[in-house]
Lab assay of single mutants.
Amino acid sequence: MATGGRRGAAAAPLLVAVAALLLGAAGHLYPGEVCPGMDIRNNLTRLHELENCSVIEGHLQILLMFKTRPEDFRDLSFPKLIMITDYLLLFRVYGLESLKDLFPNLTVIRGSRLFFNYALVIFEMVHLKELGLYNLMNITRGSVRIEKNNELCYLATIDWSRILDSVEDNYIVLNKDDNEECGDICPGTAKGKTNCPATVINGQFVERCWTHSHCQKVCPTICKSHGCTAEGLCCHSECLGNCSQPDDPTKCVACRNFYLDGRCVETCPPPYYHFQDWRCVNFSFCQDLHHKCKNSRRQGCHQYVIHNNKCIPECPSGYTMNSSNLLCTPCLGPCPKVCHLLEGEKTIDSVTSAQELRGCTVINGSLIINIRGGNNLAAELEANLGLIEEISGYLKIRRSYALVSLSFFRKLRLIRGETLEIGNYSFYALDNQNLRQLWDWSKHNLTITQGKLFFHYNPKLCLSEIHKMEEVSGTKGRQERNDIALKTNGDQASCENELLKFSYIRTSFDKI
């Protein structure tokens, strides 16, 4: 039985969820670079991206490699990797027998973001014989899940209580170790020597080791999670996991709180800001991140802002960003909400898709409305799209047979046209069989910064309504002859009103 693990408890099935942008060198404390989270699957090609990484700022997932063999891993080693800020997950990587050479110096898994409450997941690794993470000293947050690894031993010899604050939620089941077939031998045991430290858990006094050649490092209890030197002297209180010299914040392997210019500090002093819960960055760093993602459509890219001495992905609820200094300031009234469309555009074809934009005031991208039916549609669209004030790209209304009016965009005031449909149009209306009105132009103002209007096959939309939009939106004169079809717009509506004058002759039985 794995020490510190839980057996036999019912657990939810383990679901495996399925960018080499360097964020800056980590400095003297770390020998390499800070790398983003990685999802490495199918083959070993991307694994080489770990070569210079000291910190993975995010998670590391290595999974679904069915053609790899043990010899493929023999020359692979990433000794610079010290810390993973989120979680480490391995799933069905064939041929991998140990992690001792792959990650010989991995010391800390912070667990800032977890995989279903777990910071370390080893699942269905069919050839893994031992973990071998002999320098792993601290899992700051989260638990361990090690399950269905039929060859995995050296679990009962690990004292997880020396690595985690609590072992109650560890789930370590259905491994070879369960069948008591392992016969784990710690260093020196074969020669009758006791080389590794022994600890007591559940009444068992057991030597602690990761492999037959690597003991588990056990520091004096007084050192807590700070770690200790090879001689057993406690590291500085700002260290986490390990250090090369005692009581020196510049000799830590990793930091308990924050890293700044080669030393570990309790908090980031001005003019620095907390970033990702582990390091200090200056304003320029946060500003660069903001600008890199301002026009990016890459998933996970955030326009970072500053709030409460932190550089964070977005302002919290009730705050909006001051564009001059990136500071989050309290909103006066309802907060603006910028919604970034991942692929640059979004099609609204149902109430469900409209709900995804609920509360958005600025759309960074283009909207395509293609709704053919739905219950209580006008009210639903207004509830979900009615706060949109600005669209950076274009607005396209296409084959939306259920629409009679666009009044559900009740606050839309600006279409920038930074991206144009077919390279020309910022407003595009095609084949809307029941569209009769755009907006009530006596109450609604709309500016279209650039781009043209396109109207074709809107049989109940009168040309007068379209011409009014040209005047109000500032697009009059931009359109070419064929942009607004004269014969297919309003051709099934009563669009022309003329005053009919009647004269009559009164007659009676005795007068003409």
Rank of each mutant, 00 (worst) to 15 (best):
L89G: 00
I201S: 13
G300A: 06
P70L: 13
G203P: 04
V121R: 02
K67I: 03
E147S: 15
Q216M: 07
N149T: 02
F115W: 15
G333T: 07
G142L: 01
D39C: 06
T250N: 07
M83R: 01
F285R: 02
P330Y: 08
P220C: 07
P271S: 13
S284K: 02
R263K: 09
G333R: 11
L332T: 04
Q299V: 08
L102H: 01
N117F: 07
G262A: 10
N242L: 09
I82P: 00
Y94L: 15
D165F: 07
P313L: 10
C286L: 02
D86A: 07
L120R: 01
L64R: 01
F205L: 08
T250M: 07
Q61S: 10
S166Y: 09
E33W: 11
T157Q: 04
I84H: 00
G232F: 04
A119T: 04
C301F: 11
N202T: 04
I158S: 01
F73V: 06
C335V: 03
D184F: 13
P70W: 07
K100Y: 10
S237V: 04
N105P: 00
A198P: 08
M137C: 15
H48F: 05
V206S: 03
L96H: 00
C223M: 00
T329Y: 07
A198N: 12
S143F: 08
R279L: 05
T85N: 04
N325E: 15
P313T: 15
K217G: 07
S244R: 14
L106H: 02
C293M: 00
K129F: 07
S323Y: 07
N195V: 10
S98W: 01
H226Q: 13
K191R: 10
H274N: 08
G132V: 01
R69D: 04
E168S: 15
E49M: 11
S237Y: 12
E180D: 05
V108M: 10
V206Q: 15
P220W: 01
N42G: 14
C182Q: 01
H212S: 13
F116V: 01
D248R: 04
I122N: 01
R110E: 10
T320S: 05
D165L: 09
I158E: 01
S112F: 13
M38Q: 15
I56K: 00
D39S: 12
V173H: 14
M83E: 10
